[in-house]
Amino acid sequence: MGENLSKEINLNIKEFKIDLLKNGGDPGVLIPLLQSAQDSYGYVPEKVINYISEFAEIPAAEIYGVVTFYSQFRLKPLGKYIVKVCEGTACHVNGAKSIVNMLLNELGIGVGETSDDGMFSLLSVACLGCCSLAPVIMINEETFGSLTPDKVRKVLKKYRQK
């Protein structure tokens, strides 16, 4: 099964840094491997976990342990637009709560969920690091700062029309 699986994965993996696996169970390789898998797929698919387990000789249970320990890793694909709402301290005291309320209301999904049409995923993050612009959200790579609930609605409208 191992060979078939690796063939199947290889077909799908273009960006995934297979070369990291050359060193087999080289200690410390697991997190970079998972990061590159997520870079390629947008999440860490189950078959990648099995694949890494086999080739790096790390038990799958341990890999799941690592995947679920770090907030960066996801086991499910995300929507086209990833809305990250900052709930860092500066945003919190500058009214992040009403921004979250507006997002929940407008998107109709909870934090950590993806809309049925696959358009939006809503994530909450601890700090985006641009505290002077609080409250802040980020949609994919674009940052929107000094927000009010009304501005959030306008921003989302723009993305819906894209």
Partner: peptide, 10 residues
């Protein structure tokens, strides 16, 4: 740097 509200090191 993980403190929410800190961006010195970055």
């Amino acid at each position: 740097e993980g403190d929410p509200g800190a961006f010195m090191d970055r």
